[in-house]
Design a protein around this nucleic acid. Structure first.
Lengths: 234, 234
DNA sequence: ACCTGAACACCGTTCAAGT
DNA sequence: ACCTGAACACCGTTCAAGT
């Protein structure tokens, strides 16, 4: 007795008959709630209220909350720029894509917690995968190497942006007190003088943390792309 | 009025006076529960029961559930191998470290959901950071480039392992039905023939998904390291 | 066919009261 | 100083009952 994958995308949606009550309507309201209040702010009761219905009405259109999140999840992937590799060349395609992906994720921070929690089988996620693989094939990768290159790139973007989201939302729009931050570092890193020196150097040198993170992202992206080129030449 | 960072590591622990009741005891029980039942399986009530106390007793030793998770989190980082860069050379140091990090994370899958949700200011997390930066300094990076290189590497590992954890736990020990899996792909990817071809090629070529993921991880790690070397030469 | 509210089995956290 | 249980304000989901 082996397991089956379970996803909204394997089921046909209920037809929309009642006006203002459909999968699309529900997804729209879900996205509004997620963008406004984050993942913790989304509850079936609140969503019901926003839709002007009972909370349990939603279960007619969707099997459970995770399916709802799958729908919202895929909607976000749909907002990422997907250049055409044949026009732009593989390296610029990937670069444009990666920066766009980062921006979209930072704009919908709740996706960070969904990566690795939900399957990504929606049309937008698949279209993204498809386009990326085409870019890597154009670059010269063959067979499984296409998938490996694809995995390496998306891993880098996910792995960068997920902690960025954390940073962003831990500040919650407010400024982080520079002095108490330094004080915290001094306390927790008291046994690691070299590390402490690096952290304070960053703090002193960089006034704008946004551009610091942007620069760091670009550095790593170049690193991954250079590494892939090295592999193509060998 | 600006914000302050909040973390267990900024507060001194309550002294352990009652036998079998201390921060350490509580962390031990928390880890047991997390490893056994995952993040969703951890509740203050269950933890209390395991400790032979009321659920709310825990609040004497810890401010809230997140602080508890911070403690468990850092414990996991303590299990990662940290080779000495001066002995092994920077590239082998990083390679060993990265593989160890991946193994430890896959063994405690619940850490996946904590990355980017909690600050990593514990001694083990800092010791890891410290050692990694030393390796990159030894490699020849200077100033902020040390931090960028460090960020790129950890991003790659996080970004790879987080989806791996999802995959692993979605199967929950059981075999995934090969046929119904193919069927699902055929259905959801019906508009992406090239992608579908790639997915079925992977399915057919690779019998052992564990080694596939291992190979993919090694490929990406080499990519990142090659990219960093390219940067050092330029 | 679609929607409802009550009910179930949970949560994290607060707090007054106990020893 | 340390521990307790009751209580509060929530959850996601099930289901019998309504239209």
């Amino acid at each position: 007795m082996s397991k089956q994958i379970s996803s909204v995308w394997t089921r046909e949606p209920r037809p929309a008959r009642t006006p203002g009550r459909s999968r699309e309507e529900i997804v729209r309201a879900t996205l509004e709630l997620l963008d406004a209040e984050g993942l913790d702010g989304l509850s079936m009761r609140k969503l019901g209220a926003r839709l002007g219905s009972g909370a349990t009405t939603i279960y007619w259109y969707v099997e459970n909350k995770d399916e709802l999140l799958e729908l919202a999840y895929d909607h976000v992937w749909g907002q990422i720029a997907l250049p055409v590799p044949e026009e732009l060349g593989w390296r610029d395609t990937i670069t444009t894509f990666a920066h766009s992906m980062r921006r979209v994720m930072l704009f919908h921070p709740w996706v960070g917690s969904l990566i690795g929690r939900l399957p990504a089988l929606g049309p937008n996620a698949l279209s993204m995968s498809d386009r990326l693989r085409k870019a890597f094939a154009l670059a010269g990768f063959e067979g499984l190497d296409i998938d490996y290159a694809n995995a390496a790139l998306t891993a880098y973007v996910f792995g960068t942006v997920i902690p960025e989201i954390a940073w962003q939302s831990s500040m919650g729009g407010e400024e982080l007190d520079q002095e108490s931050m330094k004080e915290t570092f001094r306390h927790v890193a008291r046994d690691f003088p070299d590390l402490l020196e690096r952290l304070t150097e960053i703090n002193d040198k960089v006034s704008d943390t946004d551009t610091l993170r942007e620069t760091s992202f670009a550095f790593g992206l170049t690193t991954v792309l250079d590494g892939l080129e090295a592999r193509l030449r060998s």
